[in-house]
Every structure is written in structure tokens, then in C-alpha cells.
Design a binder for these strands. Sequence first.
DNA 1: GGCATATAGTTGTTTATACAACTATCCAAA
DNA 2: TTTGGATAGTTGTATAAACAACTATATGCC
Lengths: 146, 146
Amino acid sequence: MPNNQFKKGELYSFITGKASTAIARRLQKKFNAAGLHITIEQWSVLYHLWKQEGISQQELCNATFRDKPSITRLVDNLEKLNLVKRVASDNDRRINLIYLTRQAQKLQEEAMTLAEETLNEALETVPPDKVDVCKEVLQIVYDNLK
Amino acid sequence: MPNNQFKKGELYSFITGKASTAIARRLQKKFNAAGLHITIEQWSVLYHLWKQEGISQQELCNATFRDKPSITRLVDNLEKLNLVKRVASDNDRRINLIYLTRQAQKLQEEAMTLAEETLNEALETVPPDKVDVCKEVLQIVYDNLK
DNA sequence: GGCATATAGTTGTTTATACAACTATCCAAA
DNA sequence: TTTGGATAGTTGTATAAACAACTATATGCC
């Protein structure tokens, strides 16, 4: 039996990702206000490199759910901003390993603080157990569709 | 006290809207497979016009959470596709009222069916009460940030 | 009536996404 | 050892988003 419980307006919000759009906009404003000259998309790449640098562009594709051309161009722009460097792999010359510059390393703490701050603002007044359910549902949605 | 309950990876998914991105991609694939030559963004504009046509571009901005230039260009493209028409308002000559063409009216049923189908696939296996909690949380997030 | 201000929409620019087509390199099987 | 298929990354093209700057029209106040 279909899970057909969406009033029309709610269907719209779910598909268009109204909430995550609002979160991304708020975080971008915080970056701008703090003088961090990076986009949310660039942040999303740096996010994974801060966890582990020296990974390939393909691994960045998998981590960020983007296709290869998107990552090529994000890395292009991050290189222009002097935030990352492409280093050809010794083992496999098809592969670029992506490394952070000193400048990017210095951004990590401030950017991650602003990200956490944004989420806290977003979830203010939401009871923790409801947040848990929401996270769980969104994960299932992703797994159902991927 | 901050609602600081996100492990790093979950923070990332929440901000980047992994689930809604997956939903939008799935719906776009369905449109393509069905030979509906519209984008998700164009659908999101048509969606509101199907509910009520003859509204202004500004009203479309409010309904779709987009800024004015975005709507100008979406309406441009929808006009090129012969799906909508701009009609200058009699009362206020600054305003364009947007009307659907016959062709766009004929798309409604199929497009909306595919949208509902997509959501049902996304929410398959999710208990209805959890979906309700999730909708509620996302609405609060939006209200907290808007 | 005339002017300041607000509102509706457009245009320019930069960044990002998706898809298709492409090059370079690797690997495995004949 | 060659060759065919897979994998990593790039480039071209269309669509879209965000921001700033702009034009045109309306409105309210003197």
C-alpha cells in the first residue's frame, strides 16, 4: 500500500528541500559575514578533505554525491583560491590526489564552528528525540533512492 | 543549551540536503523517461501555476523561495518552451501575470502522478508516524531560519 | 501636482549541476 | 604482448542560483 500521506503543499516542500535550502543559505551568510570567501559547495569538499586529505577526485565524488565534472570544476576553483593542490598519484597516473594548502587548514576551525552554529539555530526548539527520528527518515529516503 | 547532537557525518547530510537531492534526481529521471521535457525547477513553478494561474512573478518568488532574477529566467525558459505566457496586468503595469498554455495544462496530471510516485518510493518502508515527525521537524527548521 | 520612496521585473556576472562526449591510463584475457 | 574494456579525469553545453545594479511603474506625502 503506498505511503500516500502527503497533502500537496507538503509534497512540494519535501521534493524541493525547503529546509536544507534554508540551512545552506544561512550558512553561506555566516561565511560571508565572517569574511570566509568560500561557497557552501566548496565547503562541502573541504569538509571531507579536513577529515582526510590526499584522497582522489573520485572519492570526493562519492563522498559529496556529485558527478565527476562537478568535482573537476570545484577542485579547479579551490585551486584558483589556493585552498587545494592536485598531486598526481605515483601508483596510478590517472588519479589526482587532492591536498589542502596551509590556508585551507587554517579555515577548518572557523568554518566548522559556523556550520555547527547554523545547525543549532536550525534545530532550536526541536526536541532531540524528534531530531533523531528526522535523521533516521532522511537516511532511509536516501537509501531507498540511491 | 545548544541542540548539539550531530555527529560530523550527519551534520554534513543535513546541511547538504542529501535526501532532497536524491528525491529531485529521481523525479527528474522519471520526467525524462516519460518524455516530459521539463526540469525539476520548471516543475516547481508549474506546480504553483497548476494550483492557481494568473499570479505575478513576485508571488511565484514567494511560493518557490526563489529570488526575482531566478523567477525571471525560469519564466523566460517556460515561455520559450511554450508552457506559460506573461500577460501585463491592467491594474498595475509593473506586474506580469503568468498564465499556463494548453500544453502546460495537459502536463499536470502526468507530472503530478510522477511526483507522488517518487515520494512513495522515497518513503517506502517508513512508518507514517515517523514521516509526520520528519515533516514537522523540517517545517520548524524552515521557520527557525527564514 | 511633484518628488521621494517602494515595488516589480530585468540584466550582468560568477558559481554550480547534469549529461554527453572525450582523453589518458590501467588491467586482464586471448 | 596486444587488445578491449574499465576507470579517472576533463571539456562542452544547457539550466539554474545568488547577488548587485539597473529600469519602469506606482504610491504617498508635501
